[in-house]
């Protein structure tokens, strides 16, 4: 059984490369049983969205 470190590592990599079939199966099995990793999976794309919002914002800092 995959642990949370390895599951989050695969989820992170899925933003850079296509996961193999067996990687996806192991990941789904873990996420199905792990609330923390299921939340992580939903939040991962939000980090990218936030980074883009950050780069294009006019109010990111109150100097």
């Amino acid at each position: 059984m995959m642990n949370c470190h390895d599951a989050t590592f695969l989820m992170s990599q899925s933003r850079e490369r296509t996961l193999s079939f067996s990687e996806r199966m192991k990941l789904r099995l873990h996420i199905g049983m792990c609330r923390g990793c299921a939340n992580f999976e939903r939040q991962l794309p939000r980090l990218g969205d936030a980074a883009k919002a950050y780069a294009s914002s006019s109010e990111q800092k109150d100097v």
Binding site: N39, F40, R46, A53, Y54, E59, K61, D62
Partner: peptide, 19 residues
């Protein structure tokens, strides 16, 4: 452990969030 985030989209562009 990651907790649920309430309505994350709505806040992405607020200046407080970006700070």
């Amino acid at each position: 452990r990651p907790a649920r985030w309430e309505d994350p989209e709505a806040e992405l562009h607020s200046s407080q969030f970006l700070a």
